[in-house]
């Protein structure tokens, strides 16, 4: 599908999507697929790791999706989408050459410069790895700027593992300590078995020089944050990205509000010290 945008004479493009073309589709699991986009004029999205976009499919609707790639010279950006609703279902049917509408990038993203020189413990549960992939790619691209990098990735069963080749590459070529675990034993798996917190005991963390970056389902946060604190990490060294229902992406519609914060504007990336007093956060 091609998409023409007859832009009216509007001073503000807050709510106007711009066309982006699908350049590649890479199925990851039966539920998740990665779609790579590029703007026809070659413009860069201009995003930071951890930011999100609103993606629009004419005839279907719009949905907020994390950008899962780091800024790159080709000016492409990736979205990995789980098939759940109307828009995400339609995203799974996209083919190279198709066009969608994009608004954004929105949100604060991870402050990658502030993390320079530190050890990183990156913890992804299930599709929580998706937004973290933008961080991991960024770190791989600027590897000398960061010290030891541990990546802990937990998923339910082998078939649900995403980014299989990249994980091997990050381990082999990017000097990253990649540790995988699945929730329950499986015939096709000879690696570690157990929930993601079972990867923590073997991990050596030097708290003052370490940041943990944690993204996963709501239930995972309380257990992983507890492990991080037991390892001695301060609350402002535990960084997370929160999911919320969103509509506008620009702090107006109210859907993503948690207590006094708007996830689309103040987040989605927060430190645990930012949100530990927000009862509705996790």
């Amino acid at each position: 599908m091609a998409l023409e945008l007859c832009q009216c004479d509007m001073e503000s493009d807050l709510y106007v999507p711009r066309p982006a073309q699908v350049v590649a589709v890479e199925p990851q699991t039966p539920m998740e697929t990665l779609v790579r986009f590029k703007f026809p004029d070659g413009a860069d999205l201009g995003h930071k790791p951890g930011q999100f976009v609103q993606i629009f499919i004419p005839g279907i609707g719009e949905a907020p999706i994390s950008v899962c790639s780091a800024p790159n010279a080709e000016c492409t950006f990736d979205l990995t989408v789980r098939k759940l609703g109307d828009v995400t279902g339609a995203l799974h049917r996209l083919q190279p050459g198709d066009t969608v509408g994009i608004r954004g990038p929105f949100g604060n993203g991870f402050d990658m410069e502030a993390l320079q020189g530190y050890d990183l413990v990156i913890v992804g549960g299930g599709i929580g790895l998706v937004p973290l992939r933008s961080v991991i790619q960024y770190v791989a691209d600027h590897r000398a700027d960061y010290a030891n990098v541990h990546l802990l990735y937990g998923f339910k069963s082998p078939v649900e593992q995403m980014y299989v080749d990249e994980l091997a590459q990050w381990q082999a070529d990017c000097d990253m300590d990649v540790r995988l675990t699945i929730d329950k034993p499986h015939d096709a798996w000879d690696g570690h078995v157990g929930v993601i917190t079972t990867l923590f005991p073997d991990l050596t963390i030097v708290p003052p020089r370490t940041y943990a970056l944690v993204v996963g389902p709501p239930i995972m946060y309380q257990f992983v944050i507890t492990e991080c604190r037991l390892k001695g990490l301060a609350d402002d060294h535990i960084i997370m990205s929160l999911e919320r229902r969103m509509r506008c992406g620009v702090g107006k519609c109210g859907h993503c509000q948690i207590n006094s914060k708007y996830v689309c504007m103040d987040g989605p990336v927060f430190t645990f010290s930012d949100v530990k007093h927000l009862w509705e956060a996790i």
Binding site: M1, A2, L3, E4, C6, D9, Y15, V16, G59, T99
Partner: peptide
Amino acid sequence: YAYRADKAAVVATPP
């Protein structure tokens, strides 16, 4: 907007 399988045209509504 108008859309079909291979093409869509979108017009932003001015304020």
